[in-house]
Simulated assay, not measured.
Amino acid sequence: MRPPRFEALLVNVAKDLPGVQRVATLAQAEHTAHPNGIAIQFASGAQFWWQITAVSAPGDVYSTEEGPAVTGPSAEPRPAPDLTAQPLRTAAVEEALAAAVAAASDEVASVDTFSNRTPAPAIGYGLAVRFHNGATIFVNGLAHVRAGATRPSGYLNLPAV
């Protein structure tokens, strides 16, 4: 699965998360520095922005049409955390996205979260989504926007909001 198609999948699954008021692509949120990603706004007004990057499947060339979907056993189910608790923790949003993506498509082979890795990665929150075709999509925690603000107060610094 390539980033644009994954972005559409992520928008669709994020809309159904508890407490979500609005989901938009980063382009729709007027953030054009990153070509793929989503902005999730919760009922509290807080937003979490997630950038999408990828490692293509072996032999895949993005300048050509995407090949047929490769499916296989579903990813391991994950529990969905409570997203109605305040303050809303970035790790809870990350885990909710992981659970939703794992259940979304039989193209997904596995989903790992960044915040559970030891040692801690450079990007503290995000997902590594591995596909049956050998591709990997990374959903990197990019920024947060506090309730009432229109732009992020910081990038890659995602405290509870």
Rank of each mutant, 00 (worst) to 15 (best):
P3V: 08
P4H: 01
R5D: 15
R5K: 13
F6M: 12
F6L: 11
E7Y: 07
E7Q: 15
L9K: 09
V11F: 01
V11I: 15
N12P: 00
V13I: 07
V13Y: 11
A14K: 12
D16T: 05
L17V: 06
L17F: 02
P18D: 13
P18V: 10
Q21F: 07
Q21I: 01
A24C: 02
L26V: 07
Q28M: 07
A29N: 11
E30W: 11
H31F: 11
H31I: 11
T32R: 14
T32S: 05
H34R: 14
A39Q: 15
I40Y: 02
Q41V: 11
Q41A: 13
S44E: 13
A46P: 02
F48Q: 09
W50M: 02
W50L: 08
W50C: 06
W50N: 08
W50T: 04
Q51E: 12
Q51V: 03
T53F: 01
A54C: 08
V55C: 01
A57I: 10
P58I: 11
P58C: 06
G59P: 10
G59R: 04
V61W: 01
V61R: 14
Y62R: 15
Y62S: 13
S63T: 15
T64H: 04
T64V: 03
E65Q: 14
E65Y: 08
E65N: 12
E66Y: 03
E66S: 07
E66N: 08
P68D: 14
P68Y: 05
V70G: 02
V70T: 14
G72R: 03
P73K: 14
S74P: 09
S74H: 08
A75I: 09
E76M: 12
P77I: 10
P79Y: 00
A80I: 00
P81I: 09
D82M: 05
D82F: 01
L83R: 03
T84V: 05
A85C: 00
A85M: 07
Q86M: 06
R89H: 09
T90D: 07
T90L: 00
V93A: 04
V93T: 09
V93Q: 04
E94F: 05
A96M: 03
L97E: 06
L97Q: 02
L97Y: 06
A99Y: 04
A100C: 02
A104I: 04
A104Y: 06
S105P: 12
D106R: 13
E107C: 08
V111K: 02
D112Y: 00
D112V: 05
T113R: 11
F114K: 02
S115W: 10
S115N: 13
S115F: 11
S115Y: 12
P119Y: 04
P119I: 04
A120I: 07
A120M: 11
P121S: 07
L127P: 07
A128F: 00
V129K: 06
F131W: 06
F131P: 07
F131K: 08
H132N: 10
N133I: 02
G134P: 00
A135C: 03
A135R: 12
T136D: 10
T136N: 04
T136W: 01
I137T: 04
F138D: 12
V139H: 03
V139F: 01
V139L: 10
N140F: 02
G141W: 08
L142I: 00
L142T: 04
L142Q: 10
L142V: 01
G148M: 07
G148L: 05
T150L: 09
G154F: 05
N157L: 12
N157K: 12
L158M: 15
